[in-house]
Design a protein around this nucleic acid. Structure first.
Lengths: 181, 181
DNA sequence: TCCGATGTTGGATTGAGTCCAACAATACAT
DNA sequence: ATGTATTGTTGGACTCAATCCAACATCGGA
């Protein structure tokens, strides 16, 4: 994602390091009881640096997924077909901080926060997919409805995959969910 | 909604008064530039009182709609059919602060905030409707997808009604949107 | 007139998020 | 070697949303 700058001071940390530190603390103390300062202290950087890597405390869990969403949004604007573009979000999505948080949502006391963040990502996909559908002639309301179904499928598949009570692969969950739409 | 207490000090203000004060200020200064203190100062109450009426600054626009959502959620848990329950959200929904904010989103500089709040409401409906569908035997993924379509329809209808470029009634927009789902 | 219930208020506190200027570490050009 | 531009880090000050609480105000009823 970051295009490797060819000059300047190298980064002292990384999204992954901060993300892991955050996950540990969320599991130990819970999300609310963990401040941004706690996270950066454990990661060994200053509080200011946190916001060089993430735009908000809640984003620390969504960094990986958001990269896929960014790519999907770009593809949709380039004219990609919604169904294929959304299906591609699952490709290469690794079990990361988000998956861990979904599974341990109760232990982290993060259920409500997770709902909010999920809603925001889903709606972003919905808006972009709907815009794409309208651009190819769909009625605005119908486009929102179909895009709502598709984007709900994406997030539902990620959830089903993360707390894999059924040992289900993400690709399978994604195609089953999108097939229902 | 408030069950009229038969004793105790009467309320010095109301949700409506605060909501109107907030709308005025959002239009004059924008959402971000308006603090909670600004709102309560204009409404003639203390800052503390604001949080007796609303749980967050952003909720000041959603109070009316949230009452309908609360009712819908209760109906869904009582076993109401998702399609009818969601359609009923539109009944009796008056043009209030929310509708004003949708129309004047740009002037208020509130577009991003409005997206977030819309996403949260839509997802709440989706979750509850999906739970209802699962309870009557639907597959979990398919339920999320269908509930996603239905809840997207509700919010899309409200938006289409609010910025009524087409002078469309809410009931019409709602039935057209739900028909597409 | 007193009592319980409900509402209001001010103040203190916490923590997220922003902003900025000073400083540090790198690649590159000369 | 020695600048120089570039990028990243840091500490600190700052704003503001949101929480909490104890003191006080205003009602109905006993």
């Amino acid at each position: 994602m970051t295009p490797e700058p060819r000059s300047g001071r190298p980064r002292a940390s990384s999204r992954e390091v901060l993300s892991e530190a955050a996950c540990e603390l969320f599991l130990e103390q819970g999300y609310d009881a963990t401040s941004v300062s706690d996270i950066t202290r454990r990661a060994g950087v200053s509080r200011s640096s946190f916001f060089n890597y993430f735009s908000a405390k809640s984003d620390v869990l969504w960094s990986g997924f958001d990269e896929r969403v960014d790519a999907a949004v770009a593809d949709l604007r380039d004219g990609g077909a919604p169904l294929e573009v959304l299906a591609a979000i699952g490709d290469g999505l690794a079990p990361d901080a988000l998956a861990l948080a979904i599974v341990n949502a109760d232990a982290m006391g993060i259920a409500a926060e997770l709902d909010r963040d999920r809603a925001i990502r889903q709606f972003r996909l919905q808006r972009e997919a709907a815009a794409r559908l309208v651009r190819e002639g769909a009625a605005p309301l119908a486009a929102q409805v179909r895009a709502g179904a598709l984007s709900a499928a994406v997030l539902a598949a990620v959830w089903a995959w993360a707390d894999h009570t059924a040992g289900r692969s993400l690709t399978d969950a994604m195609s089953e969910a999108l097939a229902a739409a």
